[in-house]
Design a protein around this nucleic acid. Sequence first.
DNA 1: CCCGTTTGCCTAAACCCTTTAGGAAGTTCC
DNA 2: GGAACTTCCTAAAGGGTTTAGGCAAACGGG
Lengths: 190, 190
Amino acid sequence: MARAGLTTQRLVRAGAELADEVGFDQVTVSALARRFDVKVASLYSHLRSSQDLKTRIALLALEEMADRAAEALAGRSGKDALAAFANVCRDYARAHPGRYTAARHPLDDATAAGSAGVRIAQLNRAILRGYDLAEPDQTHAVRLLGSVFHGYVSLETAGGFAHSAPDSEESWARILDALDSLLRNWPAHP
Amino acid sequence: MARAGLTTQRLVRAGAELADEVGFDQVTVSALARRFDVKVASLYSHLRSSQDLKTRIALLALEEMADRAAEALAGRSGKDALAAFANVCRDYARAHPGRYTAARHPLDDATAAGSAGVRIAQLNRAILRGYDLAEPDQTHAVRLLGSVFHGYVSLETAGGFAHSAPDSEESWARILDALDSLLRNWPAHP
DNA sequence: CCCGTTTGCCTAAACCCTTTAGGAAGTTCC
DNA sequence: GGAACTTCCTAAAGGGTTTAGGCAAACGGG
């Protein structure tokens, strides 16, 4: 009975690859077992449940995004930083659609608090250091940026902008221009 | 053998209610059968498959949102229209979280083209009539608005802004102000 | 009114995914 | 070499999906 060398880490990594290939919600303990040519029950020594697997994939995806964002933001500010962060989100989603979906998977509060999601939030806020925004407008702006990035990437990967002109690439560039302009001219409270 | 009076319409409506109660991805043919106190197989005379059910719920949700948006936009323009449309999205998502998730369910191209989604897109574009934007900037702006609304509502219903100040209500209002300002001062191409 | 047709719901059964319990083979270390 | 532990296994129960085929209720024409 040769051993397959299963570990939680390898399972989660393989699960992430599986998610990118077949979609996050097609990720199943059974499919993972097939991929390792192993019986399903064997995985339950390494994973508490199917939910546990999905949560771990989500945490992995958040780590990866946070790492990329941190690297992209190093040494940049202003619009450079804005575009760098935005492109990390978009590029990650296109390269790893399953993982990106995983990253949007709802986590319970405790798990979320310990995840790389908070690092991403901090980096998002760091973008605004290059602009002149005081609280609470800074927070509003952070939320706007998060919404735009997430929303655009979601709609784009769902095929929303696929079959129409102008192409998505151009809209993305112009939207980043518009956001930069908006952050530099944030309207005063009425 | 008393008949339960099942029809596709009633099943889809009940499915939508179920989605709001337990979440869209918990909507299952089995659960629906239980709700009608009927055997599972009976539903397959009215629904082709579990996927079919979900698709129909998605189409229902899109219809409902389009109707509300059309009514909200009637007689409004400029920022009034912007806020009205935005609030329709947000209010619908909060009143019917399951249906809202359903509305984001990916549809194949043919189904999407025949859905109320195109009506929603047209209404979204109609908002911009109150602003002075020529193509292709108009399209970029449409995509930006769609992204913000979808993104903000998704993050909010996922609990993203729940436990932090300032509260989500205030951010929403200020983000609408900011978008209005941006549309009135859309940056020229660099 | 009653008989044939249509329709609506049923039973039965196959298949897949999840999860737990308990067993046997491989590994480690004294 | 054997005790202890780890890794993977078989077995089984429970739930969701889907199809095939059957009986009974409703309906419509002679």
